[in-house]
Amino acid sequence: MATEANSDEGGLVFHPMDQFIIKPLFGDGPVGMFTITNSTLWMALSVIAIIALMVLGTSGRSTIPGRIQSIGELAYGFVYKMVEDVAGKDAVGFFPYVMTLFMFIVFANFLGLLPAAFTPTSHIAVTAVLALLVFVTVTVVGFVKHGLGFLGLFWVSSAPLPLRPVLALIEIISYFVRPVSHSIRLMGNMMAGHAVIKVFAAFAPMILLSTGLGLLVTPLSVIAIAAIYGLEILVAFIQAYVFTILTCVYLKDALHPAH
């Protein structure tokens, strides 16, 4: 889009990050607190897709499920089993919460792979809020359930006594780094893939500029776009999975803080 506009002027100009610009959907004004932006649109589309799958798809309540109901049940079973296996049986109360995170991330990631789409999960503001929600939930649940005993999470009782303060310091630092890695992992993966595709997309019309080098570069770029797109489909799911399973791991720490 922007690269095409610029390439008309004769040079290769890369704007791989332009796809992440947040702009108002209607009009050209500044982005205020409640402005409906492209990010808002794709979040709303995720909500619609989730409703279509999980509510409309299961409206038949059939004992023998159809295609869409099967997928909904598969998603349900996948996350439910993850919560039960990783966080423990007493964590199933958090299942709707974990399911919300998983469904939102997986749909935002996949819808963002559509051409000309926007990926809300490629923004640190979004992923940081998701990660902080998990961090705050885990910390609050830990202290509510175990009181000061939750601090036992940082006191490695299996280590020799002189080492314990040092380990406690490391544990505390790693605990507070969790939301950072949790959010940047998702955002970085989403952003990197989309940016790389955009870079190759900028190379793709080179055949229009020079017949010599372009004959070689254009097919290679198209192949690279297809290959990275396939990888991105994998990443879109895996990052949603990783985010969810880490949420379950952190929840397990909150419910069973003993080392």
Binding site: M17, D18, F20, I21, I22, P30, V31, G32, M33, F34, T35, T37, S39, T40, M43, A44, S46, V47, I50, I51, M54, V55, P96, Y97, M99, T100, L101, M103, F104, P120, S122, H123, I124, A125, V126, V129, L130, L133, M187, M191
Partner: peptide
């Protein structure tokens, strides 16, 4: 990076919370 344009953070966070609340209640 547009990701570091802090002027859009409030907007994104607001709509994200709306989205999450809607998804949570629907689910």
């Amino acid at each position: 990076m547009p990701q570091l344009d802090f002027s859009t953070f409030g907007n994104q966070i607001f709509w994200l919370m709306v989205t999450l609340v809607v998804i949570y209640f629907v689910l």
